[in-house]
Amino acid sequence: MFYYLNGTVAEVQPNLAVIDCGGVGYACATTSNTLSALKKGERAKLYTYLHVAENAFGLFGFGTVSELNSFKMLIGVSGVGPKAALAILSVSTPETLAMSIITGDEKALTVAPGIGKKIAQRIILELKDKMAKESTAGGSLTIGGESAGKSIHFTSKAAEAAAALAVLGYSTAEVAAALKGVDAESLPLEEIIRACLKKMVRS
């Protein structure tokens, strides 16, 4: 229903931001990372997700598309609800979350309040499996635009980064374009993911 809200920050409370758009205040549940960038009285843009449950619905807002995509990815895991997803994204950025999944680092997930070992293992298991399906054979990805229909072969490290970014909701063409110009040979995996996310957020 709503893609984003662009207005004035009316209230900032723990895990909640109220955005005034044309005199209507929209209460968005959100993460600590997004809240840290908001200031009461200043303008802000939050990318939103409307969660509809049996007896209630809630509006969730995020400072970046990658954080929104991470939220949607997490609530797609069986047993992970919006509250748990917000808790994880309050202690992790999209790139550190992707790194935790790639490396199987369940301890990084259990830092979040209410996230135990079993649910952390389930998140890693289900999302790693999704990454494997998203990642194409041999690390080849098709680039859109002028190079449509052509494939480029990435190093194994770049292919891992591409798989992580695909899970965060980016298309194959977007990922391939973001990886162009990134030094995947010498940069650590987390830096590759971060560099790509920055490029895609700006686009």
Rank of each mutant, 00 (worst) to 15 (best):
S92D: 02
E95Q: 11
L179V: 05
A108M: 07
K130S: 14
S147W: 11
A177S: 15
I192K: 08
Q121H: 06
A161R: 10
P94S: 04
E134V: 01
A158K: 05
P113S: 15
L165V: 00
E191I: 02
A87N: 15
V182M: 08
T110S: 13
T136Y: 07
L189V: 12
G144L: 08
K133S: 12
L125V: 10
A161I: 09
I115E: 12
M131P: 00
T136Q: 12
L97R: 02
G116M: 13
E95N: 01
A137D: 07
A177P: 01
A98W: 04
Q121T: 08
K128S: 15
L165W: 03
S151T: 14
T93A: 11
M99Q: 14
A163P: 02
D105M: 00
G144Q: 08
K180W: 00
P113G: 06
I102R: 02
A173N: 12
I193P: 03
E106L: 01
A173M: 05
S171G: 12
A108I: 01
K150M: 13
A163V: 02
I193N: 07
S90E: 08
G116V: 03
V167C: 11
S100P: 01
G149M: 11
G116F: 13
A98L: 00
S90T: 00
K130C: 06
A137E: 11
L187A: 14
E106Q: 09
E95H: 02
K118W: 05
G114Y: 07
E185F: 11
D105Y: 05
L125A: 13
L86I: 14
T93N: 03
K150N: 11
A98F: 04
G145R: 13
T103L: 09
V111E: 01
K128L: 05
D105L: 00
L168R: 06
K157R: 15
